[in-house]
Design a protein around this nucleic acid. Sequence first.
DNA 1: CCCGCCCCTGAAAAGGATTTCTTCCCTGAG
DNA 2: CTCAGGGAAGAAATCCTTTTCAGGGGCGGG
Lengths: 339, 339
Amino acid sequence: MVTIQDVARAAGVSPATVSRVFNGGNVTAARAESVRQAAAELGFAPNRLARSLRKQQSSVIGLIIPDIENPFFTSLARGVEDAAQRTGMSVVLCNSDEDVEKERRYIDIVMGEQMAGVIVAAASRDRTDLSPLMARGMPVVAVDRRPHDADVDAVMVDNQHGGEVATRHLLRAGYQRVACITGPAGASTSEERLAGYRSALRGELGNDSGDPARAASYIRHADFRVEGGRAAMQELLALPEPPDAVFVANNLMTVGALQALREAGQAPPGVGVLSFGDVPWASLVRPSLTTVELPSYDLGRTAAELLLQRMAGSAALLQTVVLRTTLKPRESTAGPSQA
Amino acid sequence: MVTIQDVARAAGVSPATVSRVFNGGNVTAARAESVRQAAAELGFAPNRLARSLRKQQSSVIGLIIPDIENPFFTSLARGVEDAAQRTGMSVVLCNSDEDVEKERRYIDIVMGEQMAGVIVAAASRDRTDLSPLMARGMPVVAVDRRPHDADVDAVMVDNQHGGEVATRHLLRAGYQRVACITGPAGASTSEERLAGYRSALRGELGNDSGDPARAASYIRHADFRVEGGRAAMQELLALPEPPDAVFVANNLMTVGALQALREAGQAPPGVGVLSFGDVPWASLVRPSLTTVELPSYDLGRTAAELLLQRMAGSAALLQTVVLRTTLKPRESTAGPSQA
DNA sequence: CCCGCCCCTGAAAAGGATTTCTTCCCTGAG
DNA sequence: CTCAGGGAAGAAATCCTTTTCAGGGGCGGG
């Protein structure tokens, strides 16, 4: 490896001078030029490890997401990246795979590599532990999911409100038995979307919301994946009185639910389907899917901006930014009579 | 930050001993225990920067891909990650965004951070420059796309063969005027798939392949993105004698092509559509899409395994592994009469 | 003409972990 | 009983860069 020493020797100066050339110190033009030339000839690239070790900071920020195959998170990642690039930072992506253990390992790496900051979409509300990061004073921003006890900046989606609007939309379209497939019990997004669903039921149906046992049986917790959504939908369809509409709390599970529906010989809008979060290629799906659109890109962008503020030390108080969702009514919730 | 010195002081030993406890040197059991306890109490996590700097190696491998929003690459990333995890390595992902400049920056980072190795799906065949990596003796594996002049291990897809099989399938289904939307002229994947298309035309049509000018006008270079595919399809449909089938060289452009088709009031299989690479949620698309399936996950897995071999020094000669594609005939290429 | 100040430069320390080198002590064999 | 050998632990060097400190030279002002 070619080091700053080699360059210094080649240019006939001290290592300190070479460093100054690259970091903007006071060096006479002629000398600077000869250093630059020597560096180019030798193919010198500063060792970022040594640099970060010495400066106690790096220009890399970590982004930990739970599912790299979910377009929601890749779009979010793009938002983070674009915002970071604008200030010369680079982003490295860590896929925790909804696994708290893997996530812990990546958190160790983020700390160990002395990254400048980290944006986390937590794998679990209760079991994700950000405290080591906090203890090190590392800038942290939570995105999409807020870990239970962490005092960090956060960028969220108005899950409950979105869930409420979605469910109300189904009810008003004329569906009578609206079910809900939500995510794992541990996740904040699951719970909030479910809370929105419940609140809409209460609001629209009043107190005569019927059999509470039946109401409970219409709620399913799955894993935010395609297979989980499919299994949950199969269970719902097997009920003695199956639902005539379903509010699915994320995009991947919606795909699974649609598969299960098709296998059972049914289809929207006969059974209403509403997805929380965009299904990519939604434009190609027939009937087109009603969705609650999430500002995934902006979620990422905002999180990155917050992190950069925090890193610059300009943000004093903790902030929580909540972004709005938008209901996009399409064919899949046209109403039970439109089957 | 709590350093090895702090732990040493707390445990009443030297830093060297602490290091030995964590890296498997000879330390008496009692002392080792007290060190471990002190470390736990202080919340000590070794500074990976310092460690890597000293050891001249890290346990992180870089993965540079051109489009994080393309499911093909995320699936590939999963393959890499799973293989790496198995040996205790971690993967950080860099999104070059098909941009050679961004890619160069990430290559700098990979080198500067002294990562253990790197897997690259190059943004450009001609302009991607892996030579700095080679010069440093860093283990490198090219995946999916082979940079022009690089002597590196590679894991590829049999693009030409796949393109040939796909095009032949369209011709045999009865389509007369088969067009091709391929990727940027600079990319190896574009060229090879196009070559397959051409070779199939020659093979099936013999020498009477008609007007060479028309043949050329049926070929479009786009950018591997949705919008590019749509624009290319619009151009094709605007021809005086529009094609009655199209072979699209990647999944995203296929989505765009389908959109353009729909806007023009047409649909498969009246106009045959065949996608090179899976379109996610393909099962939800009607009519279902004929695709050439790519072993994206295995591509990643194999690349990682190759890289690990190379890192271990056990692979002497350069290897190029070529994985097979599979044609999955579905409804979208049923034939022109099936419209 | 001299003094003081500023600019440029090099020497050396710092940053945190690993590893070599050295020392010390204990055990076992002759 | 003595000596060789080996295991355990500390001191110090090392990895590469940045940054502080100190010194030297030139220039302007008094």
